[in-house]
Amino acid sequence: MALLSVNNLKKVYTSRLGGTQVKALSSVSFTVEKGEFVAIMGESGSGKTTLLNILAGLDKPTGGEVFLNMRNIVTLGEKEMSAFRRDNLGFVFQDFNLLDTFSAQDNIFLPLVLAGKKYGEMKNRLDPIAQKLGITDILQKYPYEISGGQKQRTAIARAIITQPQLILADEPTGALDSRSSDQIMNIFSEINQDGQTVLMVTHSTRAASCASRVLFIKDGEVFHQIYRGGQSQDEMYQKISDTLTVLATGNAERGVTANG
């Protein structure tokens, strides 16, 4: 049974005057198995952000279903979705979304505080995560005192400390230099190897080459996908690059799947 199942998802935005309709998603269907690391790619305007917002419960689709751990989140009300999001989803954003008036530790603790956890439990959860991510020495510092890479590691710690079913990452290396980006993607690979399921939207071919599968969105639909299989990261990088070139020139055949 898939952890995440997206069935025939549609999203149409209508202008305030009702005269113009924009189809952001026309028919998106895919599944994500527990323990997978899936990247989603596509040109600007392809529907990636809309898809991620629906999966996060921040937007409602016009049609279709989204099952996470066998629960259809599309049917949840606002309060139910807020609680479900807190208990089941972890988020990593391009701009980190850290509170400047909170220390790194307090930023990481925030979702657990909102869930009513006690300090002892929060500290016991944090210690091994901070050690694994290499942020033990910056926990008492504030976001303005640490580097972009350290901010993103703090954000990853905040995402995984709740032990979520799924991490949703939106351009997690978009604001980082190449060295910091590589470090962050190594961390994603490591936590995925530990069993964490990750779904990442990215424009970065290098970041996507770390995933076990890449879905390509074009004109609001899943147009193509590549499985890593036994390929190296360099081989995966080349296949992704070739696919993006084909998609950009409009010569791809819809529905073709590349296996490693």
Rank of each mutant, 00 (worst) to 15 (best):
R213Q: 12
Q140N: 14
E190C: 08
A207S: 13
S180K: 11
L139N: 01
I160S: 02
Q152T: 10
P164C: 08
I156M: 02
A169I: 08
Y142F: 15
E121R: 01
Q196C: 14
P172G: 11
I184P: 07
E190Y: 09
H224G: 00
G195C: 12
D170F: 07
I146P: 00
S180T: 10
L126F: 02
R153D: 06
P172Q: 13
H203N: 11
T205K: 14
K132N: 09
R206W: 04
S212P: 09
Q163V: 03
T136G: 09
I156S: 11
P172D: 15
I129V: 03
Q152L: 06
Q150C: 09
A130R: 01
A157L: 07
G174H: 05
M122V: 02
K123W: 04
I184G: 12
Y144Q: 14
F216C: 05
N124E: 11
I167V: 14
I217Y: 05
L166D: 10
L126S: 10
I167P: 05
A175T: 09
P143A: 15
A159E: 09
L126I: 03
I184V: 15
M185Q: 03
S181T: 11
I146W: 14
L133N: 00
E190R: 04
V201R: 07
I161M: 04
S189K: 07
I187Y: 07
T136F: 13
I135P: 02
I156L: 10
E190Q: 13
V198C: 14
Y142L: 04
G149F: 09
K151T: 08
R213A: 05
R179D: 00
Q193D: 11
K151C: 11
F216Q: 03
R153C: 05
S181G: 15
Q152N: 14
E221Q: 01
E171R: 05
D219M: 08
I167H: 07
T202D: 12
R206L: 13
A159K: 04
K132Y: 03
D170R: 00
P172Y: 06
T136H: 01
E221A: 04
L133H: 02
Q140M: 12
I184Q: 11
L166Q: 07
D219S: 14
G220Y: 06
L176T: 03
N186L: 15
Y142D: 02
